[in-house]
Design a protein around this nucleic acid. Structure first.
Length: 822
DNA sequence: TGTAAGCGGGG
DNA sequence: GTGTACGCTTACA
């Protein structure tokens, strides 16, 4: 016997000798890659007997079940009594153990048809996931194993593999240093950019790791880049890729959209040469996930498509709404991709020109950016993994609802609860059809206001769930009928006052843990801070997802009435705050979901703070109204061509002259730079200088500049995205018309491409007057169009607040001649 | 107005 | 694989 201490990174199972062993891959405390095999685990599920059935007879019948499929024997090995809660009630069940995981779906239907069987539970919890839950193993956490004394050499396995006699996690500490290897490919298509593995070869492949850079390519060209390695052909490139991965022995292989592009491309190209991309540590080929949800699974090495994770988890913190490697790197790393013309790659390749050196550099940089992004976001994934308790490759690909669900599944065991089944198709449709009334949004009165204080509820929905004990099994309990009703019209709902529910209990733990982490962060040293920050962030992500989960149609723990109650309480409390504020003599300017904007007028700020304290004294449980900030000025506008105030559209400035803009089109893409600039300037002049007259004059000057053809062409280019091949458009917008002409000229045009155009003068349709910026001469543009359709719409509701041009601008006289506006 | 289809990321 | 995404925009009936 020998003792091993290691950090689990990935796991799988293998069937041998008629049973399924769990294979756990990881790093030992001294940094060696190993695999620990745990033979001590069996697949199982539960059978709920029909009312009044004899469980003794049923158990006997169950143990007789067996079947042979494709030469494999599937059989029940054990049937034992079990007792857990379902929907808040104790239920007696039979735990049915089978020989191999395949036997679960194999025998499930047969068992469902048995006499005295009511239903089957927990038949779709994957074997490796079940293992982690039952054995209380958390990936990445220090693990102790007693293993048989061998040299660890096992056929096909690429790392030393040991059979465990015991395995447990008792100590603190987790892995946070990883060997990361980033990769990226360049493909060749002489006809354009779009490439498919059926036709187009991989011409370059780059790898980037710690003290490691490499570009493999199979055409010789002159270069002074020392990391370029030439091989004979594409097949050799693929072989070399395998070799280099094995030599580097990464824990994580990072790619950008590599689930959807790089990995499947590599695998498909390798098939052509009968090469197996068997980089997995168990010696198997990487599996191509089928269906729509593509995922490449490399066993033992975590294939980490960072785009996936960035879009799902990190995106909330990013300004960009385009998740290209270029944009994401620019924002997170402050560095863009190399600027090369990819249209030149194919000709350069054909000519074996020196230009290929630039492409090699470009190729390596993509890998480096991917590597650095991976380093940056990895702490977030690691914390989420430790919180959810499932493997890195699974957590990476989970949606928010799945994160909540797998957290609940793991915790269900602690509360002795059965895991509810997932809903069937018919149920899904019913659930999708039903909508829950959402949050309350206050209609503001358009205007510019001085001295505005903003308060908001801290974690409104989570705190409601906890404070009102909102959970499936506490809903409409027998013991609390007629006590506190949920304030929602048309429904008769209440939650138990006596027994704490499953949801509120685990949610409270999560919130408390987050508070504690934030507390520790205050005094933690700089090195630990990013990890602690990632931890509190994952706790926040998880707790904020509970409300959505309750109303999510595919949820196992689904309760529309609970979700409905959460928003009802939310509306109730924000209304209460609004009413209280009015009663205390404050003017309420605005409110959205969990926030309230109060106009101080001549009252001192302390009065509003006192008001907030009074509210808090009355709030139940962990609900809390927080002071968010004081603003020097706030601007609310009306809906276009109407007197009603626009919701979710306002701008504010704080004491340090920082401007906050919400809902205005400054950030939208298909607006010309000039319209964006004028809007931003107008907002700034109004908020910072309180000079609407200056703003009005600024707009008038801009209109004059436009009319006098003094505006530069770059300021007029309207960027729009082509969403499909141009042949597929039936209605031809200006950008499609431009794209068509580009194509006619031999330029490449493809879906996803941004086409910028300038509207030139004339009487034809707009689309016939749209031209590429480089096609037009300085001053060759339709001034009227830019005034009427770009600049004026961007600012008219703002200027309207101050009575400027309201008649002309809101009278719907879109056809007015130039100059009539001001 | 409601529903279906299709896109995202990559080259 | 004891499983298969999802949320939004645009096109079209």
């Amino acid at each position: 016997m020998a003792a091993i201490q290691f950090y689990p990174i990935d796991l799988t199972y293998k069937v041998s000798g008629g049973k399924a062993d769990i294979y756990i891959f990881g790093r030992t405390t001294d940094g060696k890659q190993i695999c620990v095999v745990d033979p001590d685990f069996e697949p199982y599920f539960y059978v709920l007997p029909a009312k009044g059935a004899s469980t003794i007879v049923l158990k006997e019948n169950l143990t007789k079940i067996q079947e042979t499929v494709d030469g494999k024997e599937l059989k029940v090995t054990k049937a034992e009594d079990a007792k857990k809660m379902l929907d808040g009630r104790d239920r007696n069940a039979i735990k049915v153990t089978v020989n191999i995981p395949k036997a679960v779906p194999g025998l499930r239907d047969q068992i469902r048809e048995l006499k005295d069987v009511d239903s089957i539970l927990e038949y779709d919890v994957l074997y490796t996931r079940r293992y982690l839950i039952d054995k209380k193993i958390t990936p990445l956490v220090l693990t102790d194993a007693e293993v048989e004394d061998t040299d660890g050499r096992i056929e096909r396995m690429k790392v030393p593999t040991f059979k465990a006699t015991s395995i447990s996690q008792t100590e603190d500490g987790s892995l946070n240093e990883f060997r990361i290897l980033a990769f990226d490919i360049e493909t060749y298509n002489p006809q354009g950019k779009a490439t498919v593995p059926e036709k187009h070869p991989i011409v370059m492949l780059s790898l980037y790791g710690q003290d490691f850079k490499k570009v493999i390519t199979w055409k010789r060209f002159k270069t002074d880049l020392d990391y370029v390695e030439f091989v004979e052909g594409e097949a050799q490139l693929l072989e070399r890729f395998k070799e280099l991965v094995a030599e580097y022995s990464p824990d994580v292989m990072a790619g950008y959209y590599s689930d959807g592009f790089d990995m499947p491309f590599i695998i498909k190209r390798a098939e052509k040469y009968k090469i197996k991309i068997d980089i997995s540590l168990d010696g198997d080929v990487a599996i191509l996930g089928r269906g729509r949800a593509k995922a490449i699974d490399t066993v033992g090495i975590v294939h980490f498509d960072i785009l996936n994770f960035i879009r799902r988890v990190i995106s909330r913190k990013l300004k960009t709404d385009v998740y290209t490697l270029d944009e994401v790197s620019a924002e997170l790393l402050g560095e863009k991709k190399d600027d090369v013309d990819l249209d030149r790659l194919a000709p350069a390749w054909d000519a074996a020109s020196d230009e290929l050196s630039d492409f090699a550099k470009y190729n390596l940089k993509d890998s480096r950016l991917t590597y650095e992004l991976c380093e940056k976001i990895l702490p977030n994934l690691l914390e989420l993994v430790k919180l959810i308790g499932q493997s890195m490759k699974d957590v990476n690909r989970m949606s928010f609802s799945q994160l909540v669900e797998w957290y609940l599944i793991r915790r269900a065991a602690d509360f002795n609860q059965f895991i509810p089944n997932r809903p069937h198709h018919g149920v899904l449709e019913d659930r999708m059809a039903e909508r829950v009334k959402g949050a309350f949004v206050f209609e503001p009165t358009p205007g510019l206001y001085d001295n505005v204080v903003v308060f908001d509820f801290r974690s409104l929905y989570p705190s409601i769930i906890v404070s009102h004990n909102i959970s499936i099994e506490t809903l409409n309990c027998d013991c609390c009928r007629g006590k506190e009703q949920v304030p929602v019209e048309g429904y008769d709902l209440w939650f138990c006052k006596n027994k704490k529910g499953f949801f509120p209990t685990v949610l409270k733990e999560i919130i408390t843990r987050r508070t504690r982490v934030k507390e520790i962060m205050k005094t933690a040293d700089e090195k630990k801070r990013p990890f602690l920050d990632a931890r509190q962030e994952s706790l926040k992500v998880l707790s904020n997802s509970f409300y959505g989960y309750l109303g999510f149609y595919a949820a196992r723990w689904y309760s529309k009435d609970s979700a409905r109650s959460v928003t009802a309480y939310g509306r109730h409390y924000i209304h209460q705050v609004i009413d209280d504020a009015k009663e205390k003599g404050f003017e309420v300017l605005y409110s959205d979901t969990d926030s309230i904007f109060i106009h101080l007028k001549d009252k001192p700020e302390v009065d509003s703070i006192k008001f907030c304290e009074d509210i808090n004294a009355k709030l139940p449980g962990m609900m809390e109204l927080e002071y968010e900030g004081t603003y020097k000025r706030a601007l609310f506008v009306s809906i276009k061509d109407s007197d009603s105030g626009a919701k979710k559209k306002y701008a504010m400035i704080d004491k340090d002259n920082r401007i906050m803009i919400k809902g205005f089109e400054t950030v939208r893409r298909n607006v010309s730079p000039i319209a964006k600039r004028v809007q931003q300037e107008v907002i700034r002049m109004v908020l910072e200088d309180k000079e609407p007259k200056k703003a009005y004059e600024y707009v008038r000057n801009t209109v004059q500049d436009l009319a006098d053809k003094r505006v530069a062409t770059e300021e007029l280019a309207i960027p729009t995205k082509l969403t499909k091949p141009i042949e597929a458009y039936d209605s031809i917008g200006p950008h499609v018309a431009v794209a068509k002409r580009m194509k006619a000229k031999g330029m490449e045009v493809y879906p996803g491409m941004i086409v910028s155009y300038v509207v030139t003068p004339g009487k034809d349709k707009i689309r016939d007057r749209a031209k590429l910026p480089e096609e037009v001469k300085q001053g060759e543009y339709d001034a009227e169009y830019y005034i009427n359709n770009q600049v004026v719409p961007a600012v008219e509701t703002i200027l309207d607040v101050f009575g400027y041009g309201s008649e002309e601008l809101t009278g719907g006289k879109k056809q007015s001649k130039l100059g009539q506006y001001f």
